[in-house]
């Protein structure tokens, strides 16, 4: 058969983040010292994401993530981890699905709505961090 190389519905940037995901937490989550973890989605619906943040002086100094999901779910969480790193908590709360979409050079429309959820997991992590911080 003819060798065609790859031709996907995804942009080269999405493909790169899918095939070479950044900042993911490999294996057991005990391997990473984090201050809070946020969760979004459900495997029954096909996508679930966890975002782990390490916070110093109100800034996200490190982000790791885990994802069960399709290529755009993996790529978008990977992209989010790069966007969020170094941001203050207030800045990070402003990250929208559209920002991830722009960063990746646009996902196919039918993928955008179902798989770009990482920012909600990040929001969840920040809220949990602030609750915990408030208790101190």
């Amino acid at each position: 058969m003819v060798q065609e190389g790859q031709d996907w519905i995804y942009s080269e940037t999405v493909k790169d983040h899918f095939l070479n995901p950044r900042n993911f937490l490999m294996g057991d989550e005990a391997n990473f010292e984090y201050d809070a973890m946020g969760l979004v989605g459900n495997p029954i619906c096909g996508d679930q994401m966890k975002v782990y943040i390490k916070v110093r002086d109100g800034k996200i100094v490190d982000v790791k993530w885990k994802t069960y999901g399709c290529a755009s779910a993996i790529a978008s969480t990977s992209a989010l981890s790069e966007i969020a790193k170094g941001k203050t908590l207030d800045e990070a709360l402003e990250i929208k699905a559209e920002d991830i979409d722009d960063y990746l050079g646009k996902l196919p429309k039918h993928k955008f709505h179902c798989s770009v959820l990482g920012h909600d997991a990040l929001k969840d992590a920040i809220e949990k961090y602030r609750e915990k911080d408030g208790e101190k």
């Binding site: 060798q3 790859q6 996907w8 899918f18 095939l19 096909g46 996508d47 069960y68 999901g69 399709c70 290529a71 755009s72 779910a73 993996i74 196919p108 039918h110 993928k111 179902c114 798989s115």
Partner: peptide, 27 residues
């Protein structure tokens, strides 16, 4: 713990063509 579309596309990147019953693949 491994989602079908992701497996399908990782295989595609290796030149192996399969299909999946995952919802994500069909939209």
């Amino acid at each position: 713990a491994a989602e079908g579309e992701s497996i399908q596309l990782y295989l595609d990147a290796e030149g192996i063509i399969v299909s999946t019953g995952s919802a994500c693949a069909s939209g």
